[in-house]
């Protein structure tokens, strides 16, 4: 079907509930992206600290993790983590005599994407921590701060201006990567769009609408991340 900017396409979106289904899909995409980004941040902070001050074994394991994630295509990784992870967990559950669990939930999507995000976050945060002048961390120690307090009060907030550009980028990638989950059927935006388009045969209308939704989400994100950056860099002299 050839798309024309007629009232027909609007009708297609409003009638038959496809439009609202897509909004639900969008919400699901954003939830998964947000969760994956947050999980990635946690993994990233831990990974960066492990790489910077962990033992030899931890450092090698983390190097392997970031190298693998960065070299294998995301889609392949997602399939590996999803199926291997599900097999592993269900294998353990079966061994323990427990019932298998269904992984078709947002949680699975979050974990799968979060593991991928974590590798990139690790590198972004590691670089940012290295940009914090060592003297500031020494000053924290010299004033009697514990390692945890130093991390929370000094290292993490001081590295934020250096990490934010990379992290904003990762957030955009997280949002777009949720589309890859369509192959697994998480009910996110791209999968819903494919269903809608397949059923109505109005491919262009629905994929165009989906594209607009992703674009809108990105634009809002950019607005927010610019604000966040302005706030985080208030201590940075712009000369």
């Amino acid at each position: 079907m050839i798309w024309s900017p007629s009232s027909g396409s609007i009708e297609l979106l409003t009638a038959g509930g496809w439009g609202s289904a897509m909004l639900v899909g969008l919400a699901r995409s954003l939830t998964i992206a947000l969760g994956a980004f947050a999980l990635g941040l946690v993994i990233g902070i831990a990974g960066a600290l492990g790489k910077l001050s962990g033992g030899a074994v931890a450092r090698q394991a983390l190097d392997l993790y970031t190298t693998v994630v960065r070299s294998v295509p995301e889609l392949v990784l997602i399939l590996i983590v999803y199926f291997a992870g599900a097999d592993l967990i269900n294998g353990i559950l079966t061994a323990l005599g427990q019932a298998k669990i269904d992984f078709n939930g947002a949680i699975a999507g979050i974990v799968v994407l979060g593991v991928v995000q974590g590798a990139y976050s690790t590198e972004v945060i590691r670089g940012a921590i290295l940009s914090v002048p060592l003297g500031q961390i020494e000053a924290a120690q010299a004033f009697g701060m514990s390692s945890w307090l130093t991390l929370r009060r000094i290292t993490l907030p001081a590295m934020l201006p250096f990490a934010l550009p990379g992290l904003s980028n990762l957030w955009l990638i997280a949002m777009k990567d949720t589309a890859l989950l369509a192959v697994l059927g998480f009910g996110e935006l791209t999968q819903v769009t494919r269903q809608a388009a397949g059923t109505t045969k109005a491919y262009f209308t629905f994929f165009f609408a989906a594209g607009c939704m992703y674009l809108l989400a990105t634009m809002v994100s950019n607005l927010l991340s610019r604000r966040l950056e302005a706030w985080a860099t208030k201590g940075v002299a712009h000369v």
Partner: peptide, 26 residues
Amino acid sequence: SKTQMRRIRARLAMVFQSFNLWSHMT
């Protein structure tokens, strides 16, 4: 003892050649 060390450090204030003020704080 980290606790003892922190207690002592907190009362031995250090002033550095390169100031080392925390850049994200006023």
